[in-house]
Amino acid sequence: MSQSKKTIDFGFTEVPLDEKVKRVKGVFDSVAGNYDIMNDVMSMGIHRLWKRHTIELSGVRPGNKVLDLAGGTGDLTKAFAKRVGPQGQVVLADINESMVRVGRDRMINEGLVGNIDYTITNAEALAFPDNSFDLATIAFGLRNVTNKDKALEELYRVLKPGGQLMILEFSKVTSPAFAKLYDFYSFNILPKMGKVIANDEASYQYLAESIRMHPDQETLKQMMLDAGFDKAEYLNMNQGIVALHRGWKY
């Protein structure tokens, strides 16, 4: 982020700080209705395996309280709600009302009521007290946050002592040869798929660009430690297309 110009990246474009939130909102307002279909098409269904592995490593138990930040259409919320049971609670939180509405409707349609709450909140100023959650997750959402350092500090704040943060996010591909193929797919195929399936080429162009602008694995790990986490580590999946970062508050 440029402190002197007060601008920040929106994909490959520099925009004023106060514009990024509005532009990201526009992207997700546009894609909300087709978000699940596009996830399946973009990743050839592999996103479900990434999320499943995240859930398995979470260690969530009955009675736990979980924050699913940038929870969108609720893939993680659904799984966690089943695991925490009636004595637990899952909060699906997102800055985008359209995404929360889609997620809420999906949970209701699948009969998941009673232990799920829905909140519209900014990751940089979470609407929860200190030490509220046993686990916090943010899947494919951190790269869209304007001030990632502030968001990480907020996630640390709302975790209980002994709590864990899990960040599932696109990251830096580890193989140079594969990176070339991945770039071709991201910038030549993905936007066209967005145009055909969602009639929205521009939003998927932004999503591809936002992945490249996101901090790499080691940088994000250090950002987590700088935000206060006592321990941080990451696991690469599919040659670093995605990385699962984990941080603990002791």
Score class of each variant (00 low, 15 high):
residue 234 Y to Q: 06
residue 46 I to V: 11
residue 147 N to Q: 15
residue 12 F to N: 01
residue 77 T to M: 10
residue 149 D to Y: 00
residue 75 D to P: 06
residue 13 T to I: 15
residue 61 R to P: 05
residue 203 S to R: 06
residue 65 K to H: 13
residue 27 V to Y: 07
residue 237 M to G: 01
residue 165 L to V: 07
residue 76 L to A: 12
residue 145 V to G: 10
residue 233 E to A: 14
residue 8 I to T: 12
residue 11 G to C: 14
residue 201 E to F: 07
residue 163 G to F: 13
residue 46 I to R: 12
residue 83 R to D: 02
residue 151 A to Y: 00
residue 55 I to F: 08
residue 67 L to W: 03
residue 204 Y to F: 12
residue 193 M to T: 06
residue 146 T to S: 09
residue 151 A to E: 01
residue 8 I to C: 14
residue 91 V to N: 03
residue 30 S to Q: 12
residue 241 I to W: 13
residue 145 V to L: 05
residue 64 N to A: 15
residue 114 G to C: 09
residue 107 M to E: 11
residue 122 N to S: 00
residue 32 A to V: 06
residue 39 N to M: 14
residue 168 L to H: 07
residue 207 L to N: 11
residue 216 D to W: 07
residue 185 Y to T: 11
residue 49 L to P: 02
residue 116 I to V: 15
residue 28 F to H: 01
residue 233 E to R: 15
residue 82 K to Y: 00
residue 14 E to V: 08
residue 241 I to V: 14
residue 14 E to Y: 02
residue 82 K to W: 00
residue 152 L to N: 01
residue 14 E to R: 10
residue 160 K to T: 10
residue 107 M to H: 12
residue 39 N to S: 09
residue 146 T to Y: 02
residue 181 L to H: 00
residue 60 V to W: 07
residue 150 K to H: 00
residue 147 N to M: 04
residue 89 Q to N: 02
residue 152 L to I: 06
residue 64 N to L: 13
residue 26 G to N: 12
residue 187 F to L: 13
residue 94 D to M: 13
residue 161 P to Q: 10
residue 210 S to Q: 03
residue 33 G to Q: 07
residue 53 H to M: 10
residue 247 G to P: 04
residue 176 P to S: 04
residue 181 L to F: 04
residue 231 K to W: 12
residue 178 F to P: 14
residue 167 I to V: 15
residue 99 M to D: 05
residue 102 V to R: 05
residue 124 E to A: 01
residue 69 L to H: 13
residue 32 A to C: 07
residue 118 Y to E: 05
residue 173 V to D: 07
residue 10 F to C: 00
residue 247 G to R: 01
residue 114 G to Y: 13
residue 210 S to H: 06
residue 60 V to R: 01
residue 148 K to E: 04
residue 50 W to Q: 03
residue 66 V to F: 11
residue 8 I to S: 06
residue 220 L to F: 14
residue 113 V to F: 09
residue 103 G to Y: 13
residue 42 M to E: 03
residue 221 K to I: 06
residue 230 D to V: 12
residue 240 G to M: 09
residue 164 Q to W: 10
residue 139 A to V: 08
residue 218 E to I: 12
residue 219 T to H: 14
residue 137 T to P: 12
residue 8 I to E: 14
residue 116 I to R: 11
residue 126 L to N: 00
residue 105 D to V: 04
